[in-house]
Structure formats: C-alpha cells, structure tokens
Design a protein around this nucleic acid. Structure first.
Length: 271
DNA sequence: CAACCGCCCTGGGAGC
DNA sequence: TGCTCCCAGGGCGGTT
C-alpha cells in the first residue's frame, strides 16, 4: 500500500522521465477507478509536461494544457516503461511520451484516481483545498497540532490520521508513532498533554522521513516488476504484531479496531 | 460542526 | 488441490 513515502518515491522516480516531455497520446483502458476517469483527461494530449508535484498522497502533473491529479489508492503503481511494453492485467492508463516511453498506471483494486483540472488544483480543487499541512514541513508544528486537538473527543489515532489535521499519516505510521510516543491510541486527542504532543510531532516526522530514505531502494528498481518494499517491515514495533510480545517490555500487544482500522498497541507502554 | 460508519475493490491467506 | 470466506486499506460521502 503506498503510504506518503512511497508516493514521494514515485514522484522522484517518474519526474525526470516526464518533465519537458510532450504527451503524444493518452490511453485509458478502464475508466472505472475511484471515480470514473473523465473524458477531459484526454485533452492533455499534445501538451508538454512541466513538472510533477506531490500534495498529501496526490501527485499533480502540470502540463501546458492543464493539470492531472493522480492518487494511487491502495494498490496503484506508476512505472515508466517503453510505450510498446506488453500490457498486463490492471494496466488502466498510459501517458505516451515523445521520448518513446510511457507512464503506465496499474491498479488492481481500482481505489486510485486520475482527474483533470484546468487550474492548479492545490488551492481550489475540492479534493485538495481542505487538506491539512504536510507533516515534513515547518507548517506541522507542536503548536499547530496541540491547538488543533483542543476540544476534540476523538481518539488520537483517528485524529492524526485525519487529512484535515495533517496529511500522509496512514495506519502503519499512526500505530508506530503512538507506540514510540507512549500514547494510548484511544485516548481523546483533546486530553493529551502538550508535553506528550511535543514528543509525538518529531516522532511522526522522523518515522516518515526515515521511510522516504529507505524508499530510495524502491527508487532504484523503479521500472522493475514490483517495487514492493520490505524495507520498513523489520522496523515495525507494533503494526501487524498483535498478540506478540512488546519489544520494550515483553507485555502482550493488544489488537483492536479503531475507526475500522486495525490498531495495535502495548497496554503497558502506552497510556 | 464533530464524530462515526459504510462503501468502493481485488489479491492473498486461512480454513476446510 | 480447490473452494469459500474474510481481511486489508484511503478517503469520500452520508448520517447521526
């Protein structure tokens, strides 16, 4: 599942192949993604790509004829391959480039999306305009998160996974960050002290930054069949370890459902 | 408005 | 071996 680090790694991987290239053809084989792929997507044929940005887990491909908004969903993958490469199952969209390469989108579960916007979407598109700050920028501070949490009865885990609060903190990183910060995932966000947020904010930043670093491995074999990252798995302290021993205190880790997401924590270390 | 829940979808693993 | 069942998950959209 692409988390924020993998989306960033994708961006770094595809950007050099795309920037400055003309889009000679847009091929849509299946429009049934998260939302139906609009016919306007094809209007970027003939345009030149100016760059690829990331906002939250969205990629924004800027062209001389407008903007493409791409989300990888749960199972989406972007790869740069020769335009005549064999099309395999779930290859839904190609952007064919003047270089003879193409950007190919494969997504088995079709939770991803490809949308078109005539104007730059980050400020005015409904999907992007309400998003919270990027966790790795200076906009995501202790004061910001602490103030945003006041009065909130919601569990802190769902709070930090809320894209209106901060973007890019998926289920894995929420579990891991709360463990490292020693905070119980069900504790009301508004009742967590400022001192504990002071621990949590840098922990979120470090966890995400580290995963991006390790994503560099994925970057190298970017055009290979499946850049499935095993890299962070060995570092996981709680995610996927329900019923096993806490790595800090040997207590049995508990697994619960929170907001329909699997949640694992140590009842001893997290209060 | 805050909080919560259902739903979209397929591959993969478990169980029989 | 092959079938069925269940789970994983981001995030929108609707309901309370």
């Amino acid at each position: 599942m692409p988390e924020l680090p993998e989306v960033e790694v994708s961006r770094l991987g595809i950007s050099p192949h795309l920037t400055g290239q003309q889009i000679t053809q847009v091929i849509v084989r299946d429009r049934r993604l998260r939302w139906p792929v609009p016919a306007s997507l094809e209007t970027v044929a003939g345009a030149t790509i100016e760059g690829v940005e990331r906002r939250a887990k969205y990629l924004i491909i800027s062209t001389t004829k407008g903007y493409l908004i791409v989300h990888l969903g749960m199972s989406g993958a972007l790869r740069v391959v020769p335009a005549d490469s064999l099309v395999v199952k779930h290859d839904h969209i190609d952007l064919v480039l003047g270089s003879g390469l193409c950007l190919r989108f494969n997504d088995p579960r079709r939770f991803g999306c490809w949308l078109y916007s005539a104007t730059h979407p980050s400020a005015d598109h409904p999907l992007l305009r309400e998003l919270g700050p990027e966790p790795l920028t200076d906009a995501f501070t202790l004061d910001y998160l602490f103030n945003a949490s006041r009065g909130r009865q919601q569990a802190i885990k769902t709070f930090i996974m809320d894209n209106h609060v901060v973007v890019g903190v998926g289920n894995i990183y929420a579990n891991e960050s709360l463990f490292k910060a020693g905070i119980h995932p069900k504790r009301a966000a508004g009742k967590v002290s400022k001192a504990r947020y002071q621990r949590l904010v840098p922990i979120i930043k470090e966890t995400l930054a580290r995963a991006i670093e390790q994503g560099g491995t994925t970057l190298q074999d970017f055009t290979q069949a499946d850049g499935q990252p095993g890299y962070f798995k060995q570092e996981l302290m709680v995610y996927g370890r329900g019923g096993k021993a806490c790595m800090q205190c040997k207590s049995t880790l508990k697994e619960i459902r929170l907001g329909q997401r699997s949640t694992v924590y140590c009842p001893q270390c997290q209060r």
